[in-house]
Design a protein around this nucleic acid. Structure first.
Lengths: 135, 135
DNA sequence: CTTGATTTGTACGTATGTATT
DNA sequence: AAATACATACGTACAAATCAA
């Protein structure tokens, strides 16, 4: 489980455990985590440490938080294909908070910025797009 | 400055202020932020709130933290072009902590995953690549 | 080389606010 | 209305890394 003598921060150890459960499928998309208080008791750490662990996974795009609800394993959206023509370029980066809210995407999701040769710029939710070369 | 009656969390308000200084160029790449304690006194909030503000900007890819040093405005790397051939696809997502450390990229940077039609998979630091269609 | 000052990291506790069920 | 659960905000203490004397 978690080991206080491990030389690794408690919240990182818990994040590792939860990440494993998600990537292995023990926790599937849409599943809800136990409440923070429950996790704190179960793993014998403070709620603060639990929240830090969950925060790490939110920023990895694995979890979605909502106040009052329990934290949920994120559903991976179906990826829509974005075609890249000759002379177009695409870049990825993290959005600022305002931009993220404007696009309606959750924390932990990068954006994809496509610059068309026409000069137009398109911004996509990164987790919902697959890039492919046109032609 | 920050307004406790604004109905907006203190750490989000401070993050807004710092983000503005970075994007406007008042704080340039490589510049160091004041120490957390100093910011806490200056903006009359706890060190906890200051740390949360900084954390937001780290996850937006704007700041780099290291223990013992002061927090630094991130240098944006020169982007290297990745060519996408017909039948290749590219996707972006956030890396897990282990993957991120293995690739040697800081928190707040997405990865770019290219799947070649040959079956090979390439993983790049997202902030250091520009995608372009071959041909 | 060692010490001390500075600065960030981890971990705990408490209290109160807000959203959902 | 009440219970549950996450959000914000404060405080304390000590650990660990860095840098300068």
């Amino acid at each position: 489980m978690v080991d206080r003598e491990a030389g690794r921060a408690l919240h990182r150890q818990l994040a590792d455990l939860l990440r494993d459960q998600i990537t292995s499928g023990t926790l599937g998309p849409g599943d809800r985590l136990p409440a923070e208080d429950y996790l704190a008791q179960t793993y014998d750490m403070s709620r603060t440490a639990v929240r830090r662990a969950i925060e790490l996974l939110v920023y990895e795009g694995l979890l979605i938080k909502a106040r009052g609800l329990r934290t949920q394993v994120r559903e991976q959206p179906v990826r829509q294909v974005v075609l890249l023509n000759a002379e177009d370029t695409a870049e990825t980066r993290m959005p600022g908070e305002a931009e993220r809210l404007a696009l309606g995407i959750p924390a932990g999701e990068p954006v994809l910025v496509v610059r068309r040769m026409t000069g137009e710029t398109e911004v996509y939710a990164g987790a919902a797009t697959t890039i492919r070369a046109a032609g």
